[in-house]
Design a protein around this nucleic acid. Structure first.
Length: 888
DNA sequence: CCAACGCATGGAC
DNA sequence: TGTCCATGCGTTG
């Protein structure tokens, strides 16, 4: 191997390069002026003109290694490929069944149109991953000097200031243009992934196509089958940026990274967190790779193998997912053939942007993308800024709660240079193939005057960095093909809103300073979101009756559509009313009609007579008011401002949101200010809390109200009760099991008597645990009836061994307290007390929204003659009776 | 006294 | 309940 016989390079700077001997050991030239392959140190081999030219032209091996071993033929084109040195390592891939394939063929065989489903079997990443799996064994620890941490990293990424003599950054950037076919290893997946939160909207943006940000890039599928869970949401901005950093690398150097997970022997492929559903991102990006084509047309495959640290990456929070525009990337990688792989981003906190000069790094990001450090002192890290200037930061950590807190120290000059302030975002990327870290930044958009109140913003001077400024929403929309409605809908306006929110929340509420997508999710309250949800086309939702109320349930992912109002016509047929976006007239439509977000009269294909805005409204406002449910009252909606400011606000909030989401040009997002009614609710929130005066007085929803608020609250209440019931049942079952075991020891026959038929079949002498386990498992079923029946066999036992004090723990909807019918009233009373307690706590400002809602429900219960309570009691009563008749 | 450093704390998730 | 992380604060030079 060429590199083995050449002296290690201690410097590759241009200033000294001319005095250095050519790195090619077969060459005696001392005028090394060209750059060659990457060395372990991260520097580039210095070559003389002749060798350098040969390297650039891909003839290096032909010239200098012609007689060495390692020559093989491409399995496809039979082209002769040298596989025995570092120089040639980038020119082929190993095939699964053996043999090699030149990259040209490999690319042809693997690249697929981006708009086609990506067959996993053709995943080059996967293939490469397998190919390279065995080539990644060299420990990076030797190179990084990072102690026992067994994962490896590309040396050049961690070219610590103390260990290498890097050429000037700008030069380094420029240099890369010559290194067309040097493959650099880094196998870290982009933070593709994988936030389970985003799975909530799975399906909304499925099958969106990745639009590559660069013609040089070809996004290839490297997904595993498991990655096909759902669409990317937050990462919708990223397709172009996610030049997947699954990079191949000179396996001669063999310094791929592996995740900390490998410490545990979890050699990751583009894997899925075993405990969580594969995030959507993984679907699109996990294991994907880009093959930037160099000037010679040779694919520059950065891969290696599937990211071993996919799991760690999957745990990155969306807020750290890099959001780089194409412009940003181009700016960073301008004049270079190198490729920028966004790693993560961090929104600067007040502390980060303060004078302390410490930038707190997200732990996962630090551990995933930065070199492993075992000592708190860490390592000096060289990081380039977008202009090519090199900064040296100390990457270190502090012990913190048996964990680590990673920081970059010495960032103040850089921060000041970039004139960044709290709220701005720094983006860490990797420049490939050389693997250097690049730090871009993005100024927060349009700081408001109130920003000045923010301590950290006092240093702001309105500077905007054009190089990396994220100010062009169109660029986002261009690349954002995710269909993520919130993102598309709100566009840059949301950034402003985010800023406002940030300002209001203050530096202490950093946690609430969320990305624009997240903030959108907040603004779409659960009620509003529910109003936007529609069953998938041609999908009949199943009707679930809970507490006497019907709920539409559809297991398939709902779709987002124009909010409309469903009702029934005179014939009893379900219809929906939708309002034209242009003329605001209400049009009657079939209930099955799935409306586009921006629906107008012209889209009214169901009623040609009213397919124009000039057509009169079918019904008058008053008629509609009578027709529609109270909560959806048209007149209320239209006249809400005058009649019921609170409700109007709620409706307006929904309307505003819907319009924003639909039109994509939100003019006036609901203010982010907290309401006086509840600190966590915002104007526009139409939950029960917010639509009622804090005192609880004022208009209330009727118990028969079927508005979204009520339905959802009731459902939530029901869910809570079911959970509680289930929990209690399991508890009871466990208790009973123990008791029964005791009884079994003492009086075996009695236990058999208490068991139902199934239990009898399963019960055997002495050991009833199998039966109990079975029952316990059944109890985990979601079906409440099943829960009840499954645990019912124990109820008789419970009754026989009743512990009166346990009654306090009983929920009213549960019969798990045994068949203590005589105690039922007492239990019900207890329940009422509990609910009152909930009410009290639920209305407190410090309570969470969930308890708040529960409290409101209870309040409603209390004020409406205990409908829910009564219902629950009634059910419990009946079930108790059933338990008695069945089991005793 | 001040700045830097390093750890502790507590809110958020 | 455990983890993360923004920030406070004590210590040190």
């Amino acid at each position: 191997m060429a590199s083995s016989s050449v002296p290690s390079s201690s410097s590759s700077s241009i200033s000294s390069s001319t005095l250095k001997r050519c790195f090619n050991s077969d060459c005696k030239d001392f005028r090394s002026t060209k750059k060659g392959w990457r060395l372990r140190t991260g520097d580039l081999a210095q070559l003389c003109d002749r060798c350098g030219s040969a390297f650039e032209e891909g003839r290096f091996c032909d010239i200098f290694h012609a007689n060495t071993s390692g020559w093989r033929n491409c399995e496809t084109c039979r082209k002769r490929i040298h596989c025995g040195c570092i120089v040639s390592s980038s020119t082929f891939v190993l095939l699964d069944p053996g043999g090699i394939e030149c990259f040209t063929c490999a690319r042809k065989n693997v690249i697929l149109p981006s708009n086609l489903p990506w067959p996993q079997s053709l995943s080059l990443t996967n293939r490469l991953s397998e190919r390279y799996r065995d080539m990644s064994g060299k420990s990076w620890s030797q190179l990084a000097g990072s102690g026992p941490v067994p994962w490896k990293q590309a040396p050049s990424l961690f070219n610590s200031a103390s260990s290498s003599d890097q050429p000037p950054a700008v030069h380094s950037l420029v240099d890369l243009s010559n290194n067309f076919d040097k493959i650099y290893g880094n196998e870290r997946l982009p933070p593709s992934s994988l936030e389970k939160k985003n799975e909530d909207l799975a399906g909304i943006s499925a099958n969106w196509n990745v639009k590559l940000g660069s013609s040089e890039m070809v996004l290839m599928n490297g997904m595993r089958n498991e990655d096909k869970s759902g669409p990317c949401l937050n990462m919708c901005q990223q397709p172009h940026t996610l030049k997947e950093d699954s990079s191949s690398q000179p396996f001669g150097l063999s310094v791929p990274y592996s995740s900390p997970n490998e410490r545990n022997g979890q050699i990751g492929v583009t894997g899925i967190h075993p405990q969580q559903t594969p995030p959507h991102l993984g679907k699109q990006f996990g294991g994907t790779m880009h093959l930037p084509l160099d000037s010679s047309g040779e694919a520059q495959v950065r891969n290696g193998r599937p990211r071993a640290d996919a799991r760690g990456r999957s745990q990155l929070l969306p807020r750290y997912w890099p959001r780089c525009t194409e412009l940003e990337l181009q700016q960073i990688s301008v004049d270079s053939n190198s490729v920028i792989t966004p790693l993560f981003q961090k929104t600067l906190s007040a502390s980060d942007a303060g004078r302390i000069g410490r930038l707190v790094l997200p732990k996962k990001c630090a551990e995933t993308y930065f070199p492993p450090i075992s000592q708190p002192e860490g390592l000096p890290l060289k990081i380039l800024d977008a202009k090519g200037k090199e900064w040296i930061f100390q990457f270190r950590f502090w012990p913190n709660n048996n964990s680590r807190m990673y920081v970059l120290e010495g960032v103040t000059p850089c921060i000041q240079s970039m004139q960044l302030q709290a709220g701005d975002t720094v983006t860490f990327s990797r420049l490939e193939p050389e693997g250097r870290l690049v730090m871009g930044f993005r100024k927060a958009t349009n700081p408001l005057p109130s920003d000045q109140d923010n301590e950290a913003n006092k240093t702001g001077n309105g500077f905007s960095a054009p190089e990396v400024e994220l100010a062009d929403p169109s660029s986002w929309s261009n690349v954002d093909k995710s269909g993520y409605i919130a993102k598309e809908a709100l566009g840059s306006k949301s950034l402003i809103s985010r800023k406002r929110k940030n300002n209001i929340l203050g530096s202490k509420s950093k946690r609430l300073k969320i990305e624009n997508e997240d903030i959108i999710e907040l603004k779409i309250t659960w009620q509003e979101a529910q109003g936007l949800l529609r069953p998938p086309p041609n999908h009949v939702p199943s009707i679930v009756v809970i507490e006497g109320f019907e709920f539409e349930e559809y297991e398939d992912a709902p779709v987002l559509g124009k909010p409309s109002i469903f009702t029934s016509d005179n014939m009893g047929e379900r219809i929906q009313w939708a309002r034209c976006e242009d003329c605001l007239k209400w049009r009657k439509l079939p209930a099955c009609a799935l409306l586009p977000a921006k629906w107008t009269c012209s889209d009214n294909s169901w009623d040609p007579e009213r397919s124009s805005c000039s057509a009169a409204q079918e019904l008058t406002t008053e008629q509609l008011e009578n027709l529609l449910p109270p909560c959806n009252s048209v007149s209320k909606k239209m006249k809400a401002t005058k009649q019921d400011p609170d409700h109007a606000e709620a409706l307006e909030g929904l309307d505003t949101l819907a319009n924003l989401a639909i039109l994509g040009e939100g003019e006036a997002l609901p203010s982010s200010q907290a309401t006086t009614k509840h600190p966590r609710h915002r104007p526009g929130c139409s939950c029960i809390v917010c639509i009622q005066p804090p005192s609880g007085k004022g208009p209330k929803h009727k118990q028969t109200c079927t508005c979204n608020v009520c339905l959802t609250v009731k459902r939530r209440f029901r869910t809570l009760m079911l959970r509680r019931e289930k929990k209690q049942s399991e508890k009871e079952a466990e208790t009973t099991r123990k008791k029964q075991q005791q009884q079994n020891f003492q009086q075996l026959p009695s236990s058999e008597i208490l068991l139902d038929d199934d239990s009898l079949h399963n019960s055997n002498t002495g050991d009833s645990s199998p039966t109990m386990n079975k029952e316990g498992n059944d109890g985990s079923d979601d079906d409440p009836h099943r829960i009840k029946s499954s645990v019912s066999p124990f109820k008789g036992q419970i009754d026989l061994n009743i512990q009166p004090e346990r009654e306090e723990e009983l929920s009213p909807g549960s019969d798990s307290g045994g068949v203590m019918k005589l105690l039922h009233d007492a239990a019900a009373e207890m329940y009422l007390k509990q609910q009152q307690t909930l009410l009290n706590s639920g209305t407190g400002d410090s309570s969470g929204s969930q308890s708040q809602q529960v409290g409101d429900v209870v309040r409603e219960v209390k004020l409406s003659n205990g409908v829910i309570h009564g219902s629950s009691s009634h059910n419990a009563d009946k079930e108790h009776a059933q338990s008695l008749s069945m089991n005793v």
